[in-house]
Design a protein around this nucleic acid. Sequence first.
DNA 1: ATAATTATGTTATAATATAACGCTATACTC
DNA 2: GAGTATAGCGTTATATTATAACATAATTAT
Lengths: 133, 133
Amino acid sequence: MENKQKPLSKNQKIILEYIQKNKKPVKAYSILSNVQKKGINAPPQVYRALDKLIEIGKIHKVESQNSFVACKTSDCETPHATAFSICDSCDEVSEINDPKLFKYLLDYKDNSGIKFDGYNLEFFGTCKSCETS
Amino acid sequence: MENKQKPLSKNQKIILEYIQKNKKPVKAYSILSNVQKKGINAPPQVYRALDKLIEIGKIHKVESQNSFVACKTSDCETPHATAFSICDSCDEVSEINDPKLFKYLLDYKDNSGIKFDGYNLEFFGTCKSCETS
DNA sequence: ATAATTATGTTATAATATAACGCTATACTC
DNA sequence: GAGTATAGCGTTATATTATAACATAATTAT
Ligand SMILES: [Zn+2]
Ligand SMILES: [Zn+2]
Ligand SMILES: [Zn+2]
Ligand SMILES: [Zn+2]
C-alpha cells in the first residue's frame, strides 16, 4: 500500500506527457504553445497543472532556469529533496539520484541544530559533450 | 595580495548599500523603488548592478524567491558556491557558512566522475521563531 | 443527495527580466 | 598625453514569467 496514486486530470496528463517527451527541461510558455492544439489555452491552466505535478513529485522545477523537468527517479516520494547537475554551456540538466548525497542533505543540521524538511541543490559545470567540443 | 578590489561604481554602491541594510532578501523592483530618490530610474540600472555584485560575490540571488541578499561570509571568493536555509513560513533566509558542507559539495563527483564548478543549495524548513509561534 | 474539494476556462494584470541604442567615464598601452 | 579598449550609465521599449479573480464543471466524501 505504498502508492495511493490519485489519477491525473486531463490537463495534468497532457502537460506531464509533454514534459516527459522532452529530454531537456521546458519552459512554461513553451509548454503552453505546444499543447494549445490539445485545448489548453491560457497560462493559468499550465501553471496549475505544473503546481500539482510538482506537489506529487512527477516533475521538478529547475529554479535557476525557471524550467520544468520530469522526475527521473520514479516519482520522488520526497518531492522537495532534489538535486540536479546543470551544464553552463548547453543548459542540459540531469537529476542526481545518489542515496548517499540524499541522506547527507536530509540529515544535515545547521549550526543551531535545525533539520530541514527539504532542499534543492543545483550543481553547475560543463557536461561531457560540451567539454570535448 | 589576496584582494584586488576594484572600486564599485556609483550605482553598484547605492544598490549594495540598500541590500546590506536589509536583513531579509529584497526583490529587484523593491530595490528600484527604494533607490529612485538616489537617481536610479529604471530596471536595467538595477539588474546591471545586481549582475555585477553577484559576479564579485558581494550578494547572492536566492533562486527560489527571485530575491537578492548580501553575502554574510565576507564576500564569497567562490561566489557560485552558495548555501541557504529558507523558512517556508516567514521567508527568512540565512546563508550557511559551513566549511565541511562547502567542501563536501565542491568535492562532490557525480556518477560519471564529473566535478562541478559551483553549486547553489537551498534548504527549506521552519525557522526557530516561526516554530514557537 | 448534499456538501466539500478539486479542476477547468477565461480575461486581465502583476512581477520579473532583458534588448537595444547612444553616450560617458575609466582603465590600458604606447 | 593621444588613442583605444572596456565597463558603466540613462533611457525607452518589450520580452518573459507568473498570478488574481471569477464563474462554472467535475470529482470525491459524508
Ligand atoms: Zn525526482
Ligand atoms: Zn553541455
Ligand atoms: Zn556568500
Ligand atoms: Zn520563519
